[in-house]
Design a protein around this nucleic acid. Structure first.
Lengths: 237, 237
DNA sequence: TTCATACTTCGATCGTAACCGAACCATCTC
DNA sequence: GAGATGGTTCGGTTACGATCGAAGTATGAA
């Protein structure tokens, strides 16, 4: 009965609403201070501090001091993947927090998932890359083709640089809103950075959603066309 | 701040030690009664009953009445995958429950992961299948080759029957003890069933570990040889 | 019918952990 | 230095939820 790893410990870490809010906020990918996280969690600074130290000793968070600020991030991308997995599961069970405010649609359209693009646009991008033969999908796995390396190189992605990192180039990540895969891994990260750098899109304050400029949106949709569907298909809710 | 699915709810479901014990016990794949689960969790029947109803309304468990018994299982294989994911994460952080009793080594050698073979033997089996060209691995994904279909058909696995199910044929599942992939999906399930049917191995009571008979072990190792390593390699702990 | 087994519901207890106010450190600005 | 800002530690309160005893329901056996 006392077999295997202790899932209760990390379960209870995620299980507290304030901590869950903190983790969700950090899924936005950017480092946040204790004060910001306290606001995101809806608690005072003291309690947030207690939560943060628990999360850190639990291995979910990393922090770095910078001046009198203390910046927190998810410990690594495995934590992000774990959380997105739980989100996907929770979403499939209908355990959405029913607060369908105005941000919801924007979130479903395009958002950041730790460090890469997710949502409708994230799924579209991967679909298009596969359709174009830039990425080949076998089972659940993804790999970049030689064609894809040329193609993405032409828009300014340095693949060989990415390969040198220890992190996998392509990873599939289950999208909780679309319930389909989008592209994660160092390539997913590089692509999002590329869009942000070019000014096609920008992050929004206090939200995971990504805002595309009209021009950026046009370019994005042109770069990642889809054969078999009208512009932006939206699967069943 | 109140974005996305509610991960806190399922986190707290998993976060209670008694419930975590229940879920871990059900990772053994077989349906268990409330009384058995109470024993596994180390609580009385009343509290177990309360936990079980919470887990069920949370969508993690399914139950079916049979006479005066009430059998519980994990709701589906997605729950199993979720839990194994959390286990892998917990194990990598060293959050093992330090109770290295005699069952530990047996568990690391061969155990059941929801419905397929895991542990050292599970990893070996997948490695061997890949080496033999029966399964091709691209990125994180797995797919059965034509060779593999013939090969496995010859030992009594009906691949076309498996294909007709909605469940994916091959899935990779991260092994928490070996920290490498083993084979899940309907094919993984079928292979384990095959070994059990042939009497090569049997399940053990009250544990996820799988016991191989001496004869069964010989046959298993012969069927899934490894070129590049001495018999059974054991990675760093 | 009677009894036993499997399980649930009720009620009460009890522990723990989340929470905040207040005081305390650390770092930066002036 | 003084003052302001960012964060932690401490102490005490509070609330929630896990737990179990006891009583109640359902199913099967005799």
């Amino acid at each position: 009965m006392k077999e295997g790893p202790d899932i209760a410990q990390i379960g209870s870490l995620i299980g507290d609403p304030a901590r869950a809010n903190i983790l969700t906020a950090l899924m936005g990918g950017r480092a946040l201070t204790a004060t910001e996280l306290a606001a995101a969690a809806g608690v005072t600074l003291q309690t947030a501090s207690a939560h943060l130290s628990k999360l850190e000793t639990g291995g979910l968070l990393a922090q770095r001091k910078q001046g009198r600020h203390r910046y927190f991030t998810l410990a690594d991308d495995r934590v992000g993947k774990l959380l997105e997995g739980i989100m996907g599961f929770a979403a499939s069970r209908g355990h959405l927090r029913h607060r369908p405010g105005p941000k919801e649609p924007a979130l479903r359209k395009a958002r950041i998932c730790y460090d890469h693009l997710a949502g409708d646009y994230g799924v579209r991008m991967l679909d298009s890359l596969i359709e174009a033969g830039s990425i080949s999908a076998v089972g659940e796995g993804l790999s970049l083709t030689a064609d894809g390396e040329r193609h993405l190189g032409s828009i300014g992605i340095d693949i060989s640089g990415l390969r040198s990192s220890r992190r996998p180039l392509c990873r599939s990540c289950l999208d909780w809103s679309e319930r389909r895969a989008h592209l994660a891994g160092s390539l997913g990260k590089a692509l999002l950075s590329n869009f942000l750098d070019k000014g096609w899109a920008r992050r929004t304050e206090n939200s995971r959603s990504i805002f595309f400029t009209p021009e950026g949106e046009r370019r994005f949709l042109a770069l990642f066309p889809l054969e078999l569907s009208d512009e932006v298909t939206r699967p069943e809710p």
